[in-house]
């Protein structure tokens, strides 16, 4: 039974505390958004869970294993700017994680091809990253993370650099893919609407040092539709969170 347990994480950068005693849990199949102002420390928390940044204190336990300070092992990361390897074709980028794991060439390319199809990029297998649009690059980034079949998907403002139309399309794509392969997701964003639209649960973070101001279970069933963004309850929740963040900023 997949489960993420993050407890009592502390992190300072040169005596400036960024995270103070932060804990969170994610249940199997749960989509959790970490929402907060830019630079509040939510990305740092994600990097600590990913193992790229060491925590000063605290533990990260995934599926019963302590993975504090280690990378890999069950986690797939989608980066903000896609960050594809320019010397690899789209297909080879998707296969990267498997190649690191030592999966044979034909097997990993077969798998990669499956995920590239899943993100709607059939026919772009041999394209170089610079030949793809920003949205297509991020689709490759998502496929790359899915391809290693992680139990936990980490996404660091993956749509932050995209234009609004592309972002809306990709949000729906992400949900579609995720529903085909339900796994735990930690999704860092500063977009309130994006968090409400995508997540089962939202953790609203304060400014630095980050702590959770409010935990909110999104009261909408799946599959969700674009129309919910006009629902009165949706708008009300959006305003509440917005007020909460504004109030925190001015405190």
């Amino acid at each position: 039974m997949a489960h993420l347990n993050v407890s009592s994480i502390c992190k300072s950068f040169e005596n400036t505390p960024v995270l103070l005693d932060q804990s969170l849990e994610v249940q199997e199949g749960e989509f959790v958004a970490l929402l907060g102002p830019s630079g509040c420390g939510k990305s740092t928390l994600l990097q600590i869970i990913n193992g790229l940044v060491p925590a000063d204190r605290g533990t990260v336990v995934l599926d019963g294993k302590d993975i504090t300070g280690k990378t890999g092992a069950g986690r797939g990361m989608v980066f903000q700017g896609a960050d594809l390897f320019p010397w690899r074709t789209a297909l080879e980028n998707v296969a990267f994680g498997l190649e690191v794991m030592g999966v044979g060439k034909s097997e990993r390319l077969k798998q990669a091809s499956h995920y590239l199809n899943l993100v709607g990029l059939r026919g772009f297998e041999n394209a170089w990253p610079h030949q793809l649009s920003g949205g297509m690059q991020q689709r490759v980034g998502i496929a790359r993370a899915f391809c290693i079949r992680p139990s936990l998907l980490l996404m660091d403002e993956p749509f932050g650099a995209l234009d609004v139309q592309t972002r809306d399309v990709l949000q729906d794509e992400l949900v579609r893919i995720w529903e085909a392969e339900r796994k735990m997701v930690l999704f860092v964003t500063h977009g309130i609407e994006e968090a409400l639209y995508l997540a089962d649960r939202i953790l609203v973070f304060s400014k630095r040092p980050a702590h959770v101001l409010r935990e909110l279970v999104v009261p909408y069933e799946r599959p969700r539709h674009e129309s919910m963004k006009l629902d009165p309850l949706f708008l009300q929740l959006r305003r509440e969170i917005s007020d909460l963040l504004r109030h925190d900023m001015n405190a």
Binding site: M77, W87, V100, I148
Partner: peptide
């Protein structure tokens, strides 16, 4: 060599040698 790409490789559990082989050399 882009530290972000090195981070990508790192987060896919590439050790020092694999980061050299898969990121630094091709870059």
């Amino acid at each position: 060599v882009s530290p972000r790409l090195l981070n990508v490789a790192h987060s896919f559990a590439a050790d020092d040698f694999k980061r050299f082989r898969y990121v630094i050399l091709p870059a």
